[in-house]
C-alpha cells in the first residue's frame, strides 16, 4: 500500500532509526513500510499516524489496486 511515511518523516527531520526507536519497531520495518513492501498492523498504523499527528487516511493511501494485497 502506498503511503506518505517517507515524506512525513523527512518533513519532521528525523531518521528511520529515530522513528523506529520511538515506535519500538526495527529500522527495517520502517524501510519496508516506506517502500510499500510491507503493510503494517492496525496498531502500528495508529501509532504512526499519532506520531505524525495525522489520520490513518492521511498517512496510508488506499486505492483499488490494494484490494487483493496481503503481506
Amino acid at each position: 500500500m502506498k503511503n506518505r511515511l517517507e515524506e512525513l518523516r523527512k518533513k519532521a527531520g528525523i531518521t528511520q532509526e529515530t522513528l523506529a526507536d520511538n515506535l519500538e519497531v526495527s529500522r527495517q520495518t520502517i524501510g519496508s513500510l516506506e517502500s510499500g513492501r510491507y503493510n503494517p498492523s492496525i496498531t502500528l498504523a495508529f501509532k504512526l499516524a499519532r506520531f505524525f499527528g495525522v489520520t490513518i487516511e492521511d498517512l496510508f493511501l488506499y486505492g483499488e489496486d490494494n484490494e487483493n494485497e496481503t503481506n
Binding site: 520495518t29 503494517p40 502500528l44
Partner: peptide, 11 residues
Amino acid sequence: DIEVNDERNTI
C-alpha cells in the same frame, strides 16, 4: 527486545 518483538520480524 525490539528486534525480537518487531511485528514484521514476527511475520
